[in-house]
Simulated assay, not measured.
Amino acid sequence: MITLVFTTGAGILFLLSGLFKIFSLKESAATIKKLEILPQVISNSLGIVFPFFEVILGILIILFSPNLIVNFVAACITVLFMVINYKTISERKKS
């Protein structure tokens, strides 16, 4: 039961995060560009495509929470977010 609550919560988090980014695709792409992790062309494309991926992943987590592949992808995306945020924060402290 607890697992269901946590996976559903994570699914809702991805779903809402993606939906809010879809409503502001230009800002989403600009934010990814500002991080300067990837080349400009890739950053722009990723900023436009990624919110839709987040919505799909959120729906998959909610509907197929016991699926190992869905949970693995969600865990990888979460770790990627954490690494990017850590990199951004540590670079700001150096400035």
Rank of each mutant, 00 (worst) to 15 (best):
Met1Val: 07
Met1Tyr: 06
Met1Arg: 06
Ile2Phe: 13
Ile2Ser: 14
Ile2Asp: 14
Ile2Tyr: 11
Thr3Arg: 13
Thr7Leu: 12
Thr7Cys: 12
Thr7Arg: 11
Thr8Cys: 12
Thr8His: 09
Gly9Pro: 03
Gly9Val: 03
Gly9Leu: 13
Gly9Cys: 05
Ala10Trp: 07
Gly11Gln: 06
Ile12Tyr: 07
Ile12Pro: 02
Ile12Arg: 00
Ile12Gln: 03
Ile12Ala: 13
Leu15His: 02
Leu15Val: 01
Leu15Lys: 01
Leu19Val: 15
Leu19Phe: 12
Leu19Asp: 01
Leu19Tyr: 08
Phe20Asp: 07
Lys21Ile: 07
Ser24Asp: 14
Leu25Asn: 07
Leu25Asp: 04
Glu27Trp: 06
Ser28Ala: 12
Ala29Phe: 07
Ala30Arg: 10
Thr31Gln: 14
Thr31Ile: 05
Ile32Thr: 07
Lys34Tyr: 01
Lys34Asp: 14
Lys34Gln: 12
Lys34Cys: 02
Leu35Pro: 00
Leu35Ala: 09
Glu36Cys: 02
Glu36Ser: 12
Glu36Lys: 14
Ile37Glu: 06
Ile37Tyr: 04
Leu38Pro: 00
Pro39Gly: 08
Gln40Thr: 04
Gln40Val: 09
Gln40Arg: 03
Gln40Ser: 13
Val41Cys: 00
Ile42Ala: 11
Ser43Ala: 03
Asn44Val: 14
Ser45Gly: 00
Gly47Ser: 02
Gly47Lys: 02
Ile48Met: 11
Val49Arg: 09
Phe50Ser: 11
Pro51Leu: 08
Pro51Ile: 03
Phe52Val: 10
Phe53His: 03
Glu54Ile: 04
Glu54Leu: 15
Val55Asn: 02
Val55Tyr: 02
Val55Ile: 09
Val55Ser: 03
Val55Lys: 05
Val55Glu: 06
Ile56Met: 11
Ile56Cys: 08
Leu57Glu: 04
Leu57Ala: 08
Gly58Met: 04
Gly58Lys: 04
Gly58Trp: 05
Gly58Asp: 05
Ile59Trp: 03
Leu60Gly: 02
Leu60His: 04
Leu60Arg: 00
Ile61Pro: 06
Ile61Trp: 04
Ile62Leu: 12
Leu63Tyr: 11
Leu63Ala: 14
Leu63Asp: 05
Phe64Cys: 04
Ser65Ile: 01
Asn67His: 08
Leu68Trp: 04
Val70Met: 01
Asn71Gly: 03
Phe72Val: 08
Ala74Ser: 12
Ala74Ile: 05
Ala74Pro: 04
Ala75Thr: 08
Ala75Tyr: 10
Cys76Asp: 07
Cys76Trp: 10
Ile77Ala: 14
Ile77Tyr: 09
Ile77Lys: 01
Thr78Ile: 06
Thr78Trp: 02
Thr78Glu: 01
Val79Cys: 10
Val79Glu: 01
Val79Ala: 12
Leu80Asp: 02
Leu80Trp: 11
Phe81Asp: 02
Met82Lys: 02
Val83Asn: 02
Val83Ile: 15
Val83Ala: 13
Ile84Leu: 11
Ile84Val: 15
Asn85Cys: 09
Tyr86Ile: 14
Tyr86Trp: 14
Thr88His: 14
Thr88Leu: 08
Thr88Ile: 03
Ile89Pro: 00
Ser90Pro: 00
Glu91Leu: 14
Glu91Trp: 06
Glu91Gln: 11
Arg92Ile: 12
Lys93Gly: 00
Lys93His: 09
Lys93Ile: 15
Lys93Asn: 10
Lys94Leu: 13
Lys94His: 06
Ser95Asp: 12
Ser95Phe: 10
Ser95Gly: 15
